[in-house]
Amino acid sequence: MKIISRKKGPLINRDHLTAYLFLAPWLIGILFFTLWPFITSFIMSLQETNLFSTKFVGLDNYRALLSDRRFIKSLKVTIKFVVISVPLKLSFALFIAMLLKDKIKGVNFFRSALYLPSLIGTSVAVAAMWTQLFGPSGLINDILGIFGIQGKSWIANPKTALYVLVILVVWQFGSSMVIFLSGLKNIPVSLYEAAEIDGANKIQSFFYVTLPMLSPIILFNLILQTIGSFQTFTQAYIITKGGPINETLFMVLYIYNKAFTASEMGYASALSWVLLFVILIVTGLIYWTSKYWVYYES
């Protein structure tokens, strides 16, 4: 177990075996539970297939994508959604986590209460209450009515529909908040004390202590939220159905429509693999920039 022994020796040595032993459950999972569905979906992407009859068409599905205006639209909508919702949600979650990290009166209550929206998930009940808020006779319009502004449906308006969904996902900021909270708690108090001795005020210590120390967690949340945001489906599926005029037609909703409404499983699979590569590239870029702003202790 000498550190030097890691660098030389046979291709697989005892250390490597130990490592693979640690990885074993996950590796078994990949091989037995994930690989086969993945391969199947890739093969399907090369076929013209409704659920049941198939014909090999090579890259035709991928070629057809290029002239599919709904695909282009959905890609644009999805990217717009990711770019707006991810930073908003993360800064929101970090802001609340900063407020709730210290022991103040009732902090347990506030943490739980603010986590509640994320626990509700995306059920029919959520759809009902969200549309009640933003519908033509919803709360928002009632409030605007007090000021004499006559609002229409925010959800059915092509200019605002996407933002209604942005507000919904930002509202469910709980899981990012929890991760930030545990990250904030991991920052040694001594660092803050040192900063204070050096004469830093609260804002300075946030930028010079909190942010750098939290950067691995920020990176994590950023990457995960980006992936999750690219895959947003349920919110649009239960609330806007992709409309109006495709302004909320997220990629995964389009994939779902193609797979289960139009019964074009092959095309849907091709779309999925394109989405995988888009996400891979975007997260790869984020990862690449991380060496400039993420600080690791070790």
Partner: peptide
């Protein structure tokens, strides 16, 4: 109009 009708359903959003 469409910007009211597009979300019409038979429960929460029923016009």
């Amino acid at each position: 109009p469409v910007d009211i009708s597009a979300m019409n359903d038979f429960s929460a959003n029923s016009l």
